[in-house]
Nucleic acid binder design. Structure first.
Lengths: 207, 207
DNA sequence: TATTTATTTAATAGACTTATTAATACAACG
DNA sequence: CGTTGTATTAATAAGTCTATTAAATAAATA
């Protein structure tokens, strides 16, 4: 496990902990186990991170940010047509999920463990999506008025987009097992559902 | 907690355990805590159910069955048009989720804890969906050929349906918190998304 | 080199967990 | 009434988990 010649212990612990927390969640991962995988003494975990909670929150906060900032940083889209923009947003979001397939489950599981955490995190996300929403809404209304998109509320559209993208990744551990998918097949499914989701949404928006 | 004058202890334990497992998951619920909520001695849990694992699996299996049988028992639909049938399936599924909003999270969380469990459960679900799928596929193909539905694979349609229905309930704990929804508002959202999902899907299927 | 500082370990306290066992209360029944 | 079987409890073994402390080692610095 530890051919981490050059890497600092502190960093190695963080990485191992991240992997284990993502795999098995907070409750099912012990500092003892992290230490064993790192190949160090268990006290060292506490030396660097004081408490298990703290270690977890360091990781969690980082993942949370990665994730939500990834969703909202949709600048430099400029003046492309609305539906193209939508396609781009769906695909970016899907790509983000593909790169971080286990973050959603982590967030959903652990936020119900410590719901207060949400308020702390809400503040730290000053990347206010309001602006983005407002602009998208303006464009959507314009498309509807011009008869290029059927009548639909932005919030409903966004929930549907989010649902279609997110669900596959949340269900993946079960799907994988149930259908006995190997890595290749899993990859094919993921790639396929990306285009499928875009098509499904755009087709639904036709006037 | 226990004005369970007439109910047997064995049953009370099961019900309290069910509630706690659904609320907080397997790892975060101790037999000590279950006993405390039931108002009995902790040894009694083990007297009736031997191990915590066993108690959990009794509950889990039952929920798993409730859930998947609920999905697949779509008899007596008879000769109604394909799109009506689809609407009915989506709505039934959504109603099932509304009645059991926490089961999906339970299944997703705990199946990754003990993946072997899936094989056991797979066998017990002899309600083979193959027949249903075959029939649905026949009807879908017919609709496509007759130009009443755009070209789409059944499996993709089903995944999209499942995703749209499931995602809201899985995200609900976070959504609820993030938007500070009270029970009423939550109910409104859930009701609204039911019709929205049906519309979103049917609109997408237009040729 | 000597001394301070940072890293790492061994040992362990203290809390909690699951599970078992033996003892007790309670019921039914002959 | 006394006996038998079930339901329930108290006590506790054995293990794990987090966190702390003091000692040992390694690194840095003067």
């Amino acid at each position: 496990m530890d051919i981490n010649n050059e890497q600092s212990m502190e960093q190695t612990i963080l990485e191992v902990a991240e992997r284990l927390f993502l795999e098995k969640g907070f409750a099912m991962t012990s500092t003892t186990e992290i230490a064993k995988e790192v190949g160090c003494n268990q006290a060292l975990i506490h030396y660097y991170y004081r408490t298990k909670d703290n270690l977890f929150n360091v990781i969690f906060e980082q993942k949370f940010k990665t994730f939500f900032q990834g969703i909202f940083e949709l600048q430099n889209l400029g003046e492309i047509p609305f539906l193209d923009k939508l396609k781009y947003i769906i695909e970016s979001h899907y790509d983000l999920l593909t790169k971080n397939p286990k973050i959603p489950s982590l967030i959903l599981n652990e936020l119900s463990r410590q719901p207060e955490q949400l308020n702390t995190l809400k503040d730290k996300l000053h990347t206010l999506p309001e602006q983005l929403f407002a602009e998208l809404n303006r464009e959507l209304q314009s498309e509807i008025e011009n008869g290029r998109v059927r009548n639909i509320a932005l919030v409903d559209l966004l929930i549907s987009m989010l649902s279609l993208n997110l669900a596959l990744f949340i269900m993946m551990p079960v799907v994988e097992n149930l259908l006995s998918l190997n890595e290749t097949q899993k990859g094919i499914l993921i790639t396929h559902r990306k285009t499928e989701n875009v098509e499904f949404i755009l087709k639904s928006l036709r006037p």
